[in-house]
Structure formats: C-alpha cells, structure tokens
Simulated scan of single mutants.
Amino acid sequence: MTTSDWPARWTGIACDVGFALVAVPGLVFTAYVISDSWGGSYALFDAVASVVMCLLALARRISRAGTATAGLVVTATAVAVAEIGGLPQEPGPVTSLALAVLVGSAIRTLSPPWAGGIAAGGLLVVVAGWVSGGFKTVVVLGTLAWLGALVLGAALRLIDYRRDATAERVRRDERLALARELHDIVAHHITGIVLQAQAAQLVTDQQPAAVVGSLAGIEAAGSEALAAMRRVVGLLRDTEDAAPASPGPEQLSHLVDRFLRHGPAVQLRTPADTSSWPPELTSTVYRIVQEALTNISRHAPRARSVTVTVDQGPETITVEVVDDAPPATGRHPHRAGYGLIGMRERLQNLDGTLQAGPRPGGGWAVLATLPAPQDADRGRALSASTTEGTW
C-alpha cells in the first residue's frame, strides 16, 4: 500500500467504526423492544439476521458485488421467514441500515449494470416489506434507508467520476504541455548545433582554422542539449505527479491573478528580463510558486498578504514565497504532502535545494535555490534590474 492510499484507508476505518457505534446500540434496543412486546425468544431471529448483515457490511471491501448480493438474499429470506413464521416484521432497523451500506457502496463503486441490479434488488426488498407488513415503522425506516443509500451512493459516484475526469484532463494537459516543452528544448539546442555545422562546412576550404571553433561550439551545444534532455526525462519519471507544464515567464503574473480571486494580496518581485532562461528553469520556478500559493490557499486561510520574490545573483536564482498567517490558524504544522516532495524532486533535477517551514513571528516561508544559467555577462545583466509584478 502506497502512502497515497492511507487517507482512503483511514476514512474507511472511520466509517466502519461509525457504523459499529450505531449498529451495536441498535441491536440492543431492537432486542429489548421485541422482547418486551413479543417475548425474549422472538428477538433471536432478528438479532441473528442483523448480525449477519452487519458482518457482510463490514466485509464489503472484499467483494462489493458479492457482499451486496448476499445481503439482498439474507434480507429477502428474513422477510419471507418472518411472514411465514409469524415473527416480528423484517427487515429490522439494523438489518435495513446494513443493507443500505451494502447498496450504497455497490452503487458508488460497481459497474453500471451491477450497480443498477443491486439498486433494483434493494427496491424489491422494500416492496416485499410493504406487501407483508403494510405501513409500519420498520417498513418506513427500511424504505428511507434504501432511498438514502440510493441518493448518497449516486452522489458519491458522480463526485468520483468528476474527480477522475478532472485528474485525467490535468494529466493530459500537462503531458501535452511537456511535449511542447520538450520540443522547445530540442529545437533550441539542436538548431544551434545545425547552424554551427553549417558554418563549419562553409569555412572548411577557405578558413580551416575556424573549423576548430565551430566544432567546439557543436560540442558545447550538444552537451547542453543532453543535460536538458536528462532533466526533462527526470521529470517524466515522476508518474504520480506529471512533469510541470512549460509556462512562459509572462504566465507567473497570470498565476498570481488567479490566486487573487480567492486569496490575499500578493506582492510579486521578479527579474526584469528572464528571456534567456532555459525552459526547464522557468517551468520549475513557475511550479514552485504555484505549489506554494496552493498550500497557502489550503492551509493559511487567515493570511492577509503574500510576498513572492524571484531573484537572480551571479551564481544562484532564489524563489521565496512568504505569507503572514497568524500562528493559530489550525493548519497542519508541517504542510507535509506530495506538493513539497514534488518541488524538492524538481529542484534536485536542476541541482537546487528547498527549505520550507514556519516563520518565528507567524506565517510560512518557502525558499528554493537554483543554479543560475552559466553565462556571467547575462547573469550580471539580469541581476542589475528587478521590477515588481512584470513576470
């Protein structure tokens, strides 16, 4: 079981515990009512049927279709036996609750034919209860339980479908964007190699000495292309979280604008010119800011302002995102999750580092450091001018 499976596992355990906390008092109360009205021996049949149904409900993850089918059979049998043997009306409240759990779980998770069949089987059990018992409290409760299972199961199925569709759309979009990024990287470096080779062919006869410089340029461009390809391949190997899109420098301000629709004010500081940055670098910077702002939206609802600073020195590029949320915000103390893991992995692919943690006076800070493009003159030109909100 992967780490990402743990939230679903704990949610399932919590649901089972909640079901048990309702079912056990229900069994005791039903047995008391039947014993008081009919006699102690009459409560035994309902108790056995209820216990069997509860066990099936707790074992539903083993086989959704199998346990739901078995639950319908047990409930229908209980209704028939109670009618023939002159026993108290079935299904009892706990049996109806367990059947609702089985039916709702089947409707949410099974294929449409199976889900429809289980829902129809539940309806037949409800109709059988009305035919055998008429308008009684247990029959009404059973009907309400079936309706609740039908509505809740269908609603959760729709939510799951929309979530899966959204996740698939995001994965497809990011892979298409990655294809564009890969094309841009290859085109940029390979074009340089082709131009250098063409130049070498032109000067071979007239200026043989110049060929050496062209060959050196071809070697350098090839090395840069290989390094860039390795970085992109490293990002592609992250199958759980698709590699970042290839946003251009101008899109960072668009990201901030989208954040401002539901978040606090943002002060954005970036270098005046990032046109010479390689695509893999701009993509990583973009995704760092994106994940940091997403974490602020999720975990720091009381933050009043955010500062995003992208700065370049002679040797390093730093990306810092800081919020001023008060200490008592109820957020998770470490903001742990796959977002920080993904940021750290992307930075490692570029030989960068990541620091993230609470600030002494409140709020949270994310600081990423990356190597600057290896061009001293370009680095000094970029670091000489910084503006706010132009990225």
Rank of each mutant, 00 (worst) to 15 (best):
L202K: 12
T67G: 03
A265S: 11
G104A: 11
L152P: 00
L72M: 12
A197M: 15
A20Q: 09
A303G: 15
E174V: 07
V103T: 09
Q201N: 15
G122K: 07
A221K: 03
V212F: 15
R302M: 14
I34R: 02
W6M: 14
G213V: 05
A154C: 09
G12K: 01
G362N: 14
S63H: 09
I193E: 08
E291H: 12
G133Q: 03
V322F: 04
H189M: 04
E174Q: 14
L235W: 10
L152N: 05
G122F: 02
R331F: 02
W38L: 02
G86W: 13
P326Y: 14
S276N: 05
T318W: 06
D311M: 11
L87K: 06
A98P: 12
S385H: 10
F29L: 13
L350T: 05
L281G: 00
T284G: 08
A328W: 04
Q201E: 15
S305A: 15
P358E: 02
A106R: 13
L27Y: 00
V127C: 13
L178Q: 05
A242Q: 11
V22H: 06
D241I: 10
V138R: 13
G248R: 06
G116M: 11
L347V: 14
V308T: 07
K136V: 10
T239K: 10
Q290T: 06
L260P: 00
R331M: 00
T30F: 07
V151P: 03
E90Q: 13
D36H: 11
P25W: 06
R157I: 07
D164N: 09
L350E: 09
V79N: 01
G234N: 07
A145R: 05
V151A: 15
L293R: 03
V203K: 05
G313F: 14
P264R: 02
I193C: 06
V319D: 00
L182V: 12
L354Y: 05
M1R: 07
G362Q: 13
S50I: 03
I118C: 06
V151Y: 11
E315Q: 15
T239A: 08
I317V: 14
E240W: 04
L370V: 10
V73M: 01
T239I: 12
T307A: 15
H183K: 08
L158E: 15
V194I: 10
P113W: 14
L27R: 01
A336W: 01
A145G: 05
R157K: 10
T30P: 00
G248T: 10
V310P: 01
